[in-house]
């Protein structure tokens, strides 16, 4: 399924602009207007792309400051952060923190935030915005991971074969939307047969403004210690 077909299946109608790896616009979900902001083409997120994401979020917040806040749908397709000395020197982590603050502002201003993972959701690029939404839904082919096993093998000096063996038995380590769901990091995984418009519309009514991921991870058996240990500390 190509990108245009995916948006067609997600939204009743939509008016989306693509600008390189950046995507923005608006769409209709069950008669309701939503803002759409995202990345495409497995984008490596650099400072320029991060600034576009942040600006788009701020624009929606500004536009709705005297109106009912529209839900924001984040479309996440990122291979992670751009890797270069230049990006590090500019302080890419600070640009990501800025995007995160914009996401937080939108939430505080009453915008519902929902991420649809289309393609890849990897590490830093996913942390910056997609993973901060109230609700996170993965399309059937979504690849969710922290680091490519080949890259991890080069960084850790552990052989690729050994990492693949570990991935086969360890859901806490292995890439995959299912594993993130078990840990509470993803709320829904949609199938190819599902009616995505219906699922999106329903998911938008169920968003949680507080962070319930540790409790979900406990209930689903994927993260048994996160919730109790945090409670032990917070008393």
């Amino acid at each position: 399924m190509n990108e245009a077909e995916i948006y067609q299946r997600l939204f009743e109608t939509h008016l989306l602009q693509c600008e390189g790896m950046f995507l923005s616009g608006s769409a209709q979900v069950n008669g309701q207007t939503v803002a759409v902001i995202g990345t495409r083409g497995h984008a490596a997120i650099d400072t320029t792309l991060a600034l576009k994401l942040a600006e788009a979020i701020l624009q929606v917040v500004r536009a709705d400051s005297t109106a009912a806040p529209r839900p924001i749908i984040f479309i996440a397709d990122t291979q992670g952060q751009a890797l270069s000395r230049h990006q590090e020197l500019l302080g890419l982590n600070g640009y990501f923190a800025h995007v995160a603050r914009c996401v937080d502002l939108a939430r505080r201003q009453g915008h519902k935030l929902l991420t649809v993972i289309n393609g890849e959701a990897v590490s830093g690029g996913f942390l910056a915005y997609g993973l901060l939404a109230d609700t996170i839904c993965a399309l059937p082919d979504a690849q969710v991971r922290v680091m490519d096993l080949r890259a991890m093998s080069r960084v850790t000096k552990i052989s690729h074969v050994k990492l693949e063996e570990l991935a086969a038995v360890s859901p806490v380590f292995a890439p995959g939307a299912e594993n993130f769901w078990r840990m509470g990091g993803i709320d829904e995984i949609w199938s190819a047969q599902d009616n995505w418009q219906e699922r999106l519309s329903k998911a938008l009514t169920q968003g949680n403004q507080t962070d319930e991921r540790a409790a979900s991870g406990l209930a689903r058996g994927g993260r048994l210690m996160a919730a109790p240990v945090a409670s032990l500390v917070s008393g």
Binding site: L132, V146, V155, A174, G185, G217
Partner: peptide
């Protein structure tokens, strides 16, 4: 990295 998925979600939290 040994518990990468849990670690990534923890950082987001």
């Amino acid at each position: 990295l040994q518990e990468a998925n849990a670690g990534l979600i923890a950082i987001s939290e």
